[in-house]
Design a protein around this nucleic acid. Structure first.
Lengths: 219, 219
DNA sequence: AAAAATATTTAAGTAAGCTTAAATTTTAAT
DNA sequence: ATTAAAATTTAAGCTTACTTAAATATTTTT
C-alpha cells in the first residue's frame, strides 16, 4: 500500500481516537493538507479495497482490515518515536517528524526488533499507547485533559497530544514532560485558563494547550 | 527530490564506482528494474535539473550537484546499515533491504545523530566507505577482488560488494565477514576458481563470488 | 563495408494522487 | 420552512513515473 493510502487510513484512525469525530472527507483532507475532492476520491478507492465504508455525504468508517492497517502504522510510528527518543538527543517535535516518514518504510521485522530492544514498551514519549505486534492496544487510558483537572490537586502528565513545534518547545521549556508531576493551583473557568505551580514558578495556560496535555491524578 | 530521482542518481553513482562503466540509460534501467524508455525519460528530466549531463546515445555523467546528491544518499544508506548492524541481530541482506528504504526518509539531522552515535564510522558492515557529512569519502581503498589474490598469501576481507541474499547466506555460513582473515591456498586460473583454507576447512569459490569479495593482503 | 543484432530513443498510453471549478447536497440561520 | 452558508461530490485536467511498441541509431559480426 502506498504512503498516501497509509496516511489516509491513519488520519481516520487518529481522528476517531483523539479529536471530535467528524470523519467526513473534508475534515480528513484538512489534516492531510489535501483538497476535499482528493479525499472523496481516495475514500471511494479505499472502500473498493475494503479498508473503509463509504456512503455519499456520510462519515467514513474504517473496516476491521482498515483498523488493522492503521494500528500497524501507528505502532511503527510510536516505536520509532520511543526509539529515537531513547537513542538520540532530539526534540519531541523533530522525533515526530522523522517517525512520520520512517513509519511507512519499516518492515514488521524491524518494528519487532525495535520493540524488543526497548523492552516492548507500552507507551511512546508522548504517552500514546503502542499497539503490540498483533495490533492490539492492551492499556487503558483514564487520563483527562488539564482543562478538566481540579484546583489544588496534583497530577502526573500522561500524554502530550500534539505535533505542533511551538507546543513542544513550550513544554520543554517548562518541564512539561511525559511522567512529570504538576500541581494545578487554579482553574479560571470563565477564561478557560489553568494555573500550574511548582518550584516557585507559576505558569498560566490557555485552552490551546490545556486540551493537549492529559493527566492522571497523583495518589 | 522524489525517491525515483534519488534512486536513479544513486544507481549511476554506484555503477561508476563499482562495476564496469556503462552508464547508458539501458544499463541503469536494468539495475533499477525499469524499462530503458523510462530511464531515457528520467535522464532528460534530471539533465534539466542539472543533476547529470545527457546527450543522445552517450553515457550519463553526474554533475557535481548530482554527485553530491548521490553521496548524501549513499551516506544515509551506509549509516543505516552500520547502525542496524550494531543494534539488531539481522542478516546483512535484511539490513540492506531496510536501509534501501530508510535512506530516502532520513533527514541530514538524523543521519548526523546516527553517525555521532556510532563514533563517525568510516566503513559500513560491507566494508563500503561512509561519506562524511560534507559528502566526502576520506578513505582510500587499495583492496583487490579475491579473483586477483595470490596463492599462498593471507588476506583480510575489506568489502562484500553485493546485495544478493544467497551470497550473504553463503558468507555467513563460511565466516566470510568484513574484517576476517582468509588464506588463499590455490588459484585455478583457467577455471576462474579460488580455493580458501583455514580451520581445517577448504572452500572453493567461483568467479560469481570472487569478484564480489574484496581483500587486502595481511602483513 | 554491409548486414544483422542490439540498444536507445520517440511516441502514445496508463495509473496514482493530486488540483481547481462547478454542481449538488447538507447544515445552519433567519 | 425557506434561505443562506458550508461542505461534499463530480468533472476535467495536471504531473510523475512508469509501460509497450515502433522508429532510429549504434555496435557487432561476418
Amino acid at each position: 500500500m502506498s504512503v498516501a493510502i497509509e496516511n489516509f487510513v491513519k488520519a481516520i484512525y487518529n481522528n476517531n481516537s483523539h479529536d471530535a469525530h467528524n470523519t467526513k472527507p473534508g475534515n480528513i483532507a484538512k489534516k492531510l493538507g489535501i483538497s476535499s475532492a482528493a479525499a472523496t476520491d481516495m475514500a471511494k478507492k479505499l472502500a473498493a479495497k475494503d479498508l473503509l465504508n463509504y456512503e455519499k455525504y456520510q462519515e467514513l468508517q474504517l473496516t476491521e482490515k482498515g483498523k488493522k492497517m492503521a494500528l500497524n502504522i501507528v505502532r511503527k510510528h510510536r516505536l520509532w518515536e520511543a526509539f529515537l527518543f531513547k537513542m538520540f538527543d532530539m526534540s519531541l517535535h523533530d522525533i515526530h517528524r522523522e517517525a512520520e516518514l520512517l513509519e511507512h518504510q519499516t518492515s514488521d521485522l524491524l518494528a519487532n526488533k525495535i520493540s524488543e530492544y526497548l523492552g516492548n514498551p507500552k507507551f511512546d514519549p508522548h504517552g500514546d499507547p503502542i499497539p503490540n505486534s498483533d495490533g492490539k492496544i492492551t492499556t487503558t487510558d483514564t487520563s483527562i485533559p488539564l482543562s478538566q483537572a481540579e484546583e489544588g490537586k496534583t497530577y502526573t502528565i500522561s500524554r502530550l497530544t500534539s505535533d505542533d513545534k511551538e507546543f513542544f518547545e513550550f513544554c520543554a521549556n517548562h518541564k512539561l514532560k511525559y511522567g512529570h508531576e504538576i500541581k494545578v493551583s487554579k482553574q479560571f473557568k470563565n477564561n478557560k485558563m489553568t494555573e500550574l505551580s511548582g518550584d516557585g514558578n507559576t505558569i498560566l495556560l490557555n485552552e490551546n494547550f490545556t486540551l493537549l496535555i492529559y493527566v492522571n491524578e497523583t495518589n
